[in-house]
Structures are given as structure tokens and as C-alpha cells.
Design a protein around this nucleic acid. Sequence first.
DNA 1: AGAGCAGTTGACGTTAACGTCAGTGTAACG
DNA 2: CGTTACACTGACGTTAACGTCAACTGCTCT
Lengths: 138, 138
Amino acid sequence: MIQDPQPDIQTDLTTIRAMCDAFDVTPRTLRFYEAKKLLNPVRVGTRRLFTRRDRARLKLILRGKRFGFSLEDISQTLDLYDRDRSDAAQRQRACEIARERLAIMEAQRTELDVAIADLKAELAKVDVRGHAPRHEAE
Amino acid sequence: MIQDPQPDIQTDLTTIRAMCDAFDVTPRTLRFYEAKKLLNPVRVGTRRLFTRRDRARLKLILRGKRFGFSLEDISQTLDLYDRDRSDAAQRQRACEIARERLAIMEAQRTELDVAIADLKAELAKVDVRGHAPRHEAE
DNA sequence: AGAGCAGTTGACGTTAACGTCAGTGTAACG
DNA sequence: CGTTACACTGACGTTAACGTCAACTGCTCT
């Protein structure tokens, strides 16, 4: 009872199927991400089991993709979220990259607001001179 | 005064070089967009001259790209901004698509806010514990 | 034990969005 | 009038991000 090599991680492992269902991706995608070092599930025999860390990372990956970042971009920022990383230099670098990303995202947010306003204005124009009031429920 | 075939569009034409410089894209990109019907510059002989409309569209294209939309996606929404278009059905369709995009963008905005907050929080954590190599499990 | 089925590993195919290059044209410059 | 400089047209190359397919494990159920 002195030894406790793997605490209760056991309960926290997810199969590839469960991952696919939960995040709406294909197995191929997960394996691809693993090959790209974005994820690294543990192996039981040959099969993958994804950890809580993997799930967190996948969430960030998909989020990043929706914002138009490449996997390469994403992989660089992901490390920031690994706070068990004790490599000072490495972490320092991650911080810088993260700050850059943050700036980009804030700029993106500003631009997004403009784009939304534009689009709304354009829709309003159309509505104003609208020919036929459409069956519309919002 | 009834007829006005080509007003003063002449002064409003841009060469491909000027376009590239102004929008920071390559000639190849502009030709590609033309082939994809996203732009249609007038021709003087064989050379392209981009109109004000082209510039407006290019701006929207690049904007869309930054938000992670595909050219295909973008091409569908672009038509909304053409109000000289008198095809009712076509415009109706454009409106629907635009509304969808709007919803997507608003969702994206919400998520972006979350992502920004997350990232800031993560950066704050790193700052707080500074350089002290404290082992910490969550 | 055999059948079925999810999971795994290559290996190759695919699509989007351009890049690159070769050959041709043309307007302008000295 | 030759050369330089940029523009145009195919045509093929490239990269990212997966999809698809074949061949092979183990499991589990009967």
C-alpha cells in the first residue's frame, strides 16, 4: 500500500470512440494530432487512452482552429497550458508566443465587431427596401 | 442626363501592383481570386484593372479569411454586398446565408472572449508564480 | 473455435489555396 | 531599336489537414 504508481488516473481515461463522440472528430483526426505531437494518449497494449490533459488540449486545438489558426500555430501556444513544464526557458518562450497570440486575438475581436456591425448594416439596408417581408422568426 | 453609361469609373481603377501593395497579397492571389469569380477586374488589352467594387470585395475576402472562413464560404456571402443586383431570389438567398454567417460570427465572438479570458488567466498564473520552481499539482 | 467488431498501422489519395516556372506580350526607356 | 521591366497565361508543384483503404491485431460473444 505504500506504492501508488498510478493514482486514480484510471478513472480519467477516455477511449478513442468516446473522444470522437464528445468532440465530434474522427479517429483519423486524433491519430493525426498524436502524430503531430499535439496529443499523447497513453497506450494500453496498442490502444490509445486519452487523458484529461489530452481532452483539455483537444478543446484548445479545436477552439484555435475555429479562429483560423493553423495546427502549427496552435501547437506552439499549447505548451503554455502545461504548467507542469519546469523548463524555464521553454516556458518563457511559450509566454512570449502566447502574448503574441493574445494580441492577435484581441485585434481579431475588434475586427470581428466591425465585421458584425457591417454585416448587420448591410442586412438592414436590404430589409429597409425589402420587397417581400419574409416568414421570419428570430 | 438620362444616360450615364460609364461615369467617372476611369479615375477609380487600380493596377494589379497597386492592389498587391495596398492589400499585401501577391499577383497570383488576385488572379486566383479572379479565376474563382471572387473578383472581376476590367481588362485593358490583356491587363487587369481593379474597380472600387473589387477593392471592397477583396477587403471582405481577406477579412473573412482571418476569421477562418474558406473562399467558398466567403464567395457565398459576398453577393450580399452587391446591391446593384436586382435578382430577387438570388438576393433573398444571399440574405439567408448572411444571417447564418452572422450567427456564426456572433458565436465566434462569444467564444473568442472566452478564449481571450482563458489565455489571460493562464498568463496571469505564470506571472504570479514567477520563476520560483514550485512543484504543484492541481 | 469461429465470427464479428473496434482499434491500429502504413500508404496513398484529396482538397484548398496558393507558389513557381517557362514562355509570350507589350509599354517604356535610353 | 534593343533591352529592361512588369504583366499574362498555362501548367505543374506544394503544404496543411485530413480521408480512404488494406491488412493486421486483439476482444468478446456464442
